[in-house]
Design a protein around this nucleic acid. Structure first.
Length: 819
DNA sequence: GGAGTTCGCATACC
DNA sequence: ACAGGTATGCGAACTCC
């Protein structure tokens, strides 16, 4: 049979000691089917130059290697001699085909001590990555599959699913069919009576899909909404959950933090009740992989924990201060969670249960909406990176960059570099930092008529323009090679040189930057979410490529190339600053790739002319852009000294839109009162240029505070608990608050945002931490603390720019009892 | 026991 | 362990007399 097919999920299995790949996807008609493909596992051996002529002999020796592990006999099946490239250099290599991928590493180690061998490579790449890379069967693209349905032989047992068709492929070819498909998404959410996994009960499970909504429970059976499905007990409810998922038959099952909470909780309750959580289409249970956060994989259904993807990739587009479902959904499509007071859980009335069901369903509903909203980004990212959706939605940016490189190596005839082993990672981490970007110290003041220039994708464009990478670093100056500016590296003043011949990673990055430009333009002509997602994906990839160079876990790590990139960044920033200054503009600030300056007596046209001139002098693909013109800007001094504070400013553009950076207004660990007040004052000063009126705002706030008219909610301070309580050397207020929560048996966990306020206390200790109170504690707030440690520090430096010393005025007014 | 200083920590900028 | 370095500023903990 022959048909069109789009792979959605990838998996593999062993049959008679050999590896097979299982693809789950849909046909053109929308049927969900399974395609099985064979795969010949292999790795590479690179010969030492002097032994290249002995390559045939080496092959013969290698063929005798066997591995016996886990009662599996595995060996070298055949070898192939190829001319390849490794790190840009021509090599003679042997591709060694083995029985089973799991033994590739072992076999590679066994032949490692042969004197003819220089390197062994690609035994450390996961099998699905190797399969996709070599057979070019990529996720979410259309293929024409030729093959036979398998039904009643031994082999079929290995691929047993409840799908109607399973096909053993004889041929898989790229299809002409374009475009994607709309996945069938099902969102789920659970509510429990104890948040520690498996400790309590799952009170309800909600499901939300296309034209589908359910809330499953065993707690309350009468007078509930029509979507509530009531079961005899918790075990029956879980069976019901599995049944509903199977009936709906989704491509994607999604939750929010479901890797870390919902799925493991369901599994643990199922286990307690001696049930199988057989969600897989072959009736298998979810498999949890180990890692920093365990990931729940379901066979045949892509389990996506939206939180993981947002945390690793998508959060860069967001303003949200936390990545809670509520805040993220609120920002992306204005939908909020419902309110439910969990303290009622012990005394629930009928109406409370109805509210609770509704709350739970709403969580699934907004998870579903979020999945639909983010799908274009997941889709495009998956197609560009070419890894299975499961991994694309969980990997961090460094892995994305690396996988993108790996899946494009064949175009350069390159063999992949190996992953660093533990010792190498430790060694790389032990090296100190290298010098970073340049930040210009501003002179505090109130400025008018400004312009800001910035370099577009500065690091990436430098890497491309100067051919910076691990494989292009050369020992000494060559004809046409690129030379870095002189800079200090590990305590030594030096230069680095990079070859003239383009390396494959700078070449790839050049493509990425080009594609980003192309799709950004296309998106501007045709605003559709897929084009936006594609353009964004290339942008993220370009921006992460510099960080990847300096990341200790990278296959293509090069501390020299990373440090060289920054040497160029500093050089271009300072030279551009000089050019602008020499034209008669007043430089105000600069940070890494941006430069802000006063127009003084110049016109906007002159600024644009200057921009054109600078651009004509920039090498390679480097580009300077006009970020914007600004009417006014405010720069303050540091709190400790009189010097100007870096990374802290407020700008007002020509549409009267405020751009605030670094100020307390944008810091989530300051109370709302101080943040809002500072924001209002900055607004007043920048919009009206009237600091006297702004001062009135401060006076009103102080008098409200002293008269205890401030809502306690506006005084809450939120700080993240970034480690386990016991791991802190210094006990800050948020740690004291976390300890207090633990005493009161309020769940506290690493990574949580701790909320507290500072109150009056009889046993006044020396530390602020001794006066910490939790949000529901009925204690008077500490007026002095909020005045001296929140309000005044937030606005003091702003007024100082205008020569107003607020402390003196406040003390004066206090004496005259004006407050 | 108070003043001055250093250090740990969280968060922001690019 | 899961992109990099630069920077501010609080509060705790230390040092010193």
């Amino acid at each position: 049979m022959k048909f069109e097919f789009i792979p959605i999920d990838f998996d593999y299995f062993d049959f008679e000691g050999k590896n097979y790949i299982r693809l789950i996807g849909r046909t053109e008609k929308g049927e969900k089917i399974c395609v099985i493909d064979n795969y010949e596992p292999n790795f590479w051996i690179i010969l030492k130059k002097e032994y290249e002529k002995n390559v045939e002999k080496v092959c013969e020796k290698i063929k005798k290697t066997v591995s016996e592990k886990a009662s599996r006999l595995s060996g070298v099946l055949r070898t192939e001699i190829c001319n390849k490239k490794f790190l840009g250099k021509e090599v003679v290599a042997i591709q060694v085909f083995v029985t089973n991928h799991k033994d590739a590493h072992d076999i590679a180690s066994k032949i490692g001590d042969m004197k003819e061998i220089e390197f062994r490579r690609e035994y450390d790449i996961p099998i699905l990555t190797k399969y996709i890379k070599e057979k070019k069967v990529e996720p979410l693209r259309w293929y024409t599959v030729d093959g036979n349905a398998i039904s009643s032989n031994e082999f079929s047992k290995m691929s047993n699913t409840d799908l109607k068709i399973c096909v053993y492929a004889s041929k898989i070819e790229k299809s002409k069919k374009e475009g994607g498909f709309k996945p069938k998404i099902l969102a789920y959410d659970i509510e429990v009576d104890d948040t520690e996994i498996g400790k309590g009960n799952i009170l309800m499970v909600s499901l939300y899909g296309d034209n589908f909504r359910k809330c499953l429970t065993w707690k309350k059976c009468e007078n509930s909404q029509d979507y509530v499905d009531c079961f005899e007990n918790q075990a029956k409810m879980i069976e019901g959950f599995v049944k509903y998922v199977k009936e709906y038959d989704p491509d994607v099952l999604t939750g929010y933090f479901s890797d870390g909470f919902d799925l493991p909780y369901l599994k643990s309750i199922a286990k307690k009740n001696r049930l199988k959580l057989n969600l897989g289409i072959d009736d298998s249970e979810p498999i949890f992989s180990r890692g920093r956060i365990s990931s729940g994989k379901i066979f045949g259904i892509v389990h996506i924990d939206l939180y993981r993807f947002i945390d690793a990739v998508f959060s860069q587009y967001l303003q949200s201060e936390t990545l809670s479902l509520n805040e993220v959904a609120g920002e992306l499509f204005g939908e909020k969670k419902e309110n439910f007071d969990f303290e009622k859980l012990n005394s629930m009335k009928d109406s409370d249960w109805r509210d609770f069901f509704s709350y739970c369903l709403q969580d699934s509903r907004i998870t579903y909406m979020l999945a639909e909203k983010i799908w274009p980004d997941i889709f495009e990212f998956t197609r560009i990176i070419k890894e299975p959706i499961f991994d694309v939605t969980r990997d961090r940016m460094s892995s994305h960059v690396e996988n993108f490189i790996i899946h494009n190596l064949d175009r350069f005839n390159e063999i992949a570099e190996k992953r660093p082993v533990y010792d190498e990672i430790e060694q790389r981490k032990s090296l100190g930092k290298y010098e970073g970007a340049f930040v210009l110290q501003p002179i505090p003041g109130f400025y008018e008529n400004l312009a800001v220039f910035d370099f577009t994708s500065m690091h990436a464009s430098i890497i491309v323009s100067f051919n910076l990478s691990k494989s292009t670093l050369v020992d000494k100056k060559e004809k046409g090679s690129f030379q870095t500016p002189e800079f200090e590296f590990d305590g030594e003043k030096k230069f680095f040189y990079f070859s003239k011949e383009k390396g494959f990673t700078p070449k790839l990055l050049e493509e990425v930057v080009g594609l980003r430009k192309k799709y950004k333009k296309e998106y501007n002509e045709n605003k559709n979410p897929l084009l936006k997602a594609r353009s964004n994906a290339y942008k993220l990839l370009a921006n992460a490529s510099y960080g990847y160079l300096g990341f200790f876990g990278a296959r293509y790590y090069s501390r020299e190339a990373a440090a060289s990139t920054l040497a160029f960044v500093r050089d271009f920033a300072s030279r551009t600053i000089e050019k602008i200054r020499n034209e008669g503009y007043g430089i105000i600030f600069s940070d890494t790739d941006s430069i802000g300056f006063e127009l003084k007596n110049k016109t906007k046209n002159q600024v644009l002319e200057l921009l054109k001139k600078i651009n004509s002098e920039l090498p390679g693909i480097m580009e300077l852009d006009l970020e914007d013109f600004y009417r006014r800007g405010l720069f303050v001094s540091k709190r400790t000294t009189k010097e100007g504070a870096k990374k802290k400013y407020a700008l007002l553009d020509e549409n009267n839109k405020l751009k605030i950076r670094g100020f307390e207004t944008v810091r989530r660990d300051w109370c709302k009162l101080a943040r809002d007040l500072q924001n209002e004052i900055l607004k007043k000063i920048l919009e009206d240029g009237d600091e006297k009126r702004a001062f009135e705002l401060l006076k009103v706030a102080i008098s409200k505070l002293k008269n205890r008219k401030i809502n306690i909610r506006d005084l809450m301070i939120r700080t993240q608990l970034r480690r386990e309580i016991s791991q802190y050397l210094s006990e800050g207020p948020h740690v004291a608050a976390a300890k207090k929560m633990k005493e009161k048996e309020i769940p506290v966990s690493q990574g949580m945002l701790i909320e507290y306020f500072i109150g009056e206390s009889k046993s006044k200790g020396k530390r602020i931490g001794d006066r910490v109170f939790l949000p529901n504690e009925k204690v008077n707030y500490d007026v002095d603390y909020y005045l001296n440690n929140q309000i005044i520090p937030a606005v003091e430096n702003i007024f100082e720019v205008f020569g107003i010393n607020i402390k003196n005025i406040i003390e004066g007014e206090e004496q005259r009892k004006l407050f």
